[in-house]
Design a binder for these strands. Structure first.
Length: 206
DNA sequence: AGCACGATTAACT
DNA sequence: GTTAATCGTGCTC
């Protein structure tokens, strides 16, 4: 049905598959009883299944073993992995795959659809187009911070979850290299594990 | 205990 | 196109 919440089984698959299928889904955040929501238009997969991925925090740090920061990535799917970077930004990821694998999907951009007024407040009055067209922007718009790290996205009484929507046609999905990987070696630097909705104006880097 | 750097953004020239 | 902002994390000493 249209508005069903995505269950753990949806997330408990390889990150690339989940990243592609999350396009078009609705991310919902409940704040003070108010829904803030957007359609996912851009994602990136990290550590697809058990393949090594030197761009992934889980594989890069501590010889691929969990650290305090990356621990939730190694746990069950359908859980939020939220981390802090550049001294000021929060990034929202969804844990995928199987326990023991550091699988996750980064949500990079949304098209805002509900609670837009509140998102504008959270984003210091920025324009509609600038509310959620980037990973740190959408976290700020949806009031996502470290308090949501480890949050269960599949529980009925949660404050953040995903809802199914109309299916996206395969032709509407574009792919390319992931953004901002810095010193990451090849082949991971160029591997096309970024997914977005073609021609959507809310994609961070068209 | 100290250090280099990051799944970025916004404000510059 | 360039760069400052800003601090938790993980690695080295």
């Amino acid at each position: 049905m249209m508005d069903e919440r995505l269950e753990r089984s949806f997330f408990a698959r390889p990150a690339r598959q989940v990243a592609a299928e999350l396009l078009g889904k609705r991310l919902v955040r409940l704040v003070n009883g108010r829904r803030l929501a957007g359609i996912i238009v851009e994602t990136e997969a990290y550590c697809d299944a058990a393949e090594p991925d030197l761009a992934c925090h889980g594989d890069r740090a501590n010889q691929g073993k969990p650290t305090p920061r990356t621990a939730v990535m190694f746990g069950p799917a359908g859980v939020a992995y939220v981390y802090f970077t550049y001294g000021m930004h929060w990034m929202f990821n969804i844990v995928t795959g199987q326990p023991g694998e550091a699988n996750a999907v980064l949500i990079r951009a949304l098209e805002p659809v509900e609670g837009i007024e509140q998102m504008m407040v959270n984003r210091n009055g920025r324009s509609h187009r600038q509310l959620t067209n980037g990973p740190a922007k959408l976290a700020q718009a949806l009031a996502i911070d470290k308090s949501l790290n480890g949050a269960n996205l599949c529980t009925p009484d949660g404050v953040i979850w995903l809802e199914s929507t109309l299916a996206v046609l395969p032709e509407a999905i574009a792919t390319g290299p992931r953004i901002g990987l810095g010193q990451t070696p090849e082949p991971w630097l160029s591997i096309p594990w970024r997914y977005w909705l073609r021609d959507n104006p809310y994609v961070s880097k068209p």
